[in-house]
């Protein structure tokens, strides 16, 4: 069944279609959720809230063919709001500092996802979200602006800084690697 058929079935009130849509897209959305959550449990919570919003908002969905992008935006939005609420509650959402991995940049191809995450997660908080939203999830600066309540130009500037930061970090890691070896 295509997404479009599933949506029509859901809007007709078919519960089975809801489950089918859930099973089809949950793995992909979970990856998105993970990127903006502090752990898997949090990511599942985010996904649960996001799916509720998706089902409620399906009647409003009009962009044929871009369902996953629409759902992804809801997941990211939910995760970011959850993070804000946690901040209000004074919960620590900081990811424990991960030391820069000492690896040969030439061997970056052999790095695991966690090692790559190490670099990304060490980005300053303000740059990290923009970097992930733009580079990993492919949102436009306008969309990032809406999600983070910043201007599109601010998003662009933050991305530039994030890229610079990444470059310098990897260069430093390279020097460290060369020195230690």
């Amino acid at each position: 069944m295509t997404d479009s058929q599933l949506i029509k079935a859901i809007l007709r009130g078919e519960a089975k279609a809801q489950k089918a849509l859930f099973e089809k897209h949950t793995p992909g959305l979970f990856q998105v959720s993970l990127r903006y959550s502090k752990n898997e449990m949090d990511a599942e919570d985010v996904l649960q809230d996001a799916w509720m919003k998706i089902f409620k908002g399906l009647s409003a969905y009009r962009e044929e063919g871009k369902l996953f992008a629409w759902m992804k935006k809801i997941v990211v939005h939910t995760a970011l709001r959850k993070k804000e609420r946690a901040w209000f509650k004074n919960e620590s959402t900081r990811i424990h500092d991960i030391r820069h991995p000492k690896v040969d940049p030439n061997a970056i191809q052999d790095m695991t996802a966690d090692e790559i995450l190490g670099y990304v997660l060490n980005l300053p908080e303000g740059y990290k979200q923009v970097f992930k939203l733009f580079v990993i999830d492919g949102f436009s600066h306008k969309e990032i602006g809406e999600l983070l309540n910043i201007e599109a130009s601010t998003s662009r500037a933050k991305l530039t800084h994030a890229r610079k930061w990444m470059r310098e970090t990897i260069m430093n890691a390279n020097k460290l690697y060369a020195h230690e070896s």
């Binding site: 970056i108 695991t112 996802a113 790559i116």
Partner: peptide, 8 residues
């Protein structure tokens, strides 16, 4: 960035 995306 492509590598990072791929790894993710």
């Amino acid at each position: 960035e492509n590598i990072i995306k791929e790894k993710y």
